[in-house]
Design a protein around this nucleic acid. Structure first.
Lengths: 200, 200
DNA sequence: TTGTTAATTAAACTCTTGTTTGATTATTAA
DNA sequence: TTAATAATCAAACAAGAGTTTAATTAACAA
């Protein structure tokens, strides 16, 4: 048999979701095209109809879409003119952490598979640019807080990387079926980093 | 030609060091046996004399040795009966962070290559056991501090994972030739997490 | 010296897996 | 109805890379 009825047709989005799952379970190199395909009831060759550039392209889109998704959540908070730096930081952490816990496969890919896009000439620059933009959102909030005197002075670079490390690591250990909700985790993390920044 | 003079002979330790470097640069799957071998002026086949079980065994030993190294640094502090919980935490962070910044390839491997040992029946359990023991060192210090009233109550599990996330992420972004020393990073991180724990 | 063992090499072996290709079937617009 | 296009499959292709093997040489003890 060949082509499926229209309603059952597999979309690019379906494939990317499946790919993220397989990447989480087996890693990019451990994930065979056939594994990804079978998750959506296709064969390996069929994937090339949707992604002519093959496995690399699938990885690129998983990571770029994932990072864009997280970025939009955080940006919405950070660019709200009615919030103070401490409010922004707290809400941004909440938005960021819950975005990760609600998309655990994407969260894992953002940690473990980033390496595999760095040797890919096509994808590398676009991805790194996205990542800088994202990191800058946090740096800006922290710098603003320091400048306005609500936050005590810290090394913004180290502080931001420490915060992002804590967040990204969620992608390594978080299990949806576990004891902890995204909100629990966000609350604890927000508390830690706000305590550290607020003057006493 | 074949065997080298005794003084120039390549040791297992040399190979593991080289392997960690290659893993950092290219990842476990991107690292060819020939790449590792050429770093120590051998050919791929020669590695099987030192590591009969091949590439998997090399990964296992890189990760186990690396984790043992870091564990010993931290354990020395944590098991010192003369230190209070806040002193222990501060010194443990310092020891841990500097161990990572002084061994950047190992630090990177501990983040990125752990995945690749989890599907390895031989290595998996031994490694996970080590990791639990290590994580427990930090949990114990924090729990002790809470029990004795110097630390305010927090979710020890989330707190520890947040701290370890911050630390492990160093293996992703730290560059030895960069602006920051291990001591700088340790000082900032210790400050963040102690502020968060100390009662006001 | 000389036999034994350790260390190494080159080259062949295999297997896996991403990719390509040509045919086949469903869909849809004219 | 029918031509054109989209989606899919099965099977072949290609190439890389981990591993094995047999031979070779250095070291060292007796």
């Amino acid at each position: 048999m060949a082509r499926k009825p229209a309603e059952q047709a597999v979309s690019r989005e379906d494939i990317l979701l499946a790919a993220a799952d397989v990447f989480r379970a087996q890693g990019y190199h451990g994930a065979k095209m056939a594994d990804i395909a079978s998750e959506v009831d296709l064969t390996a060759g069929s994937l090339y109809h949707h992604f002519p550039a093959g496995k690399q392209q699938i990885l690129r889109e998983v990571l770029n879409n994932g990072l864009d998704m997280v970025t939009e959540h955080v940006r919405k908070i950070v660019e709200d003119p009615d919030l103070s730096p401490p409010e922004k930081l707290k809400k941004a952490i909440y938005a960021h952490v819950t975005a990760l816990t609600e998309n655990p496969s994407v969260a894992a890919a953002l940690v473990f598979e980033t390496r595999n896009i760095l040797n890919d000439q096509e994808g590398r620059d676009a991805y790194l640019k996205r990542r800088d933009i994202f990191e800058n959102l946090y740096q800006q909030v922290i710098q603003d807080g320091i400048d306005s005197g609500v936050f005590k002075p810290v090394d913004v670079d180290i502080f931001t990387k420490t915060l992002l490390g804590a967040h990204n690591w969620i992608g390594v250990w978080y299990r949806p079926e576990g004891r902890l909700s995204g909100a629990d985790i966000a609350a604890t993390i927000a508390d830690i980093f706000l305590q550290a920044l607020l003057q006493r």
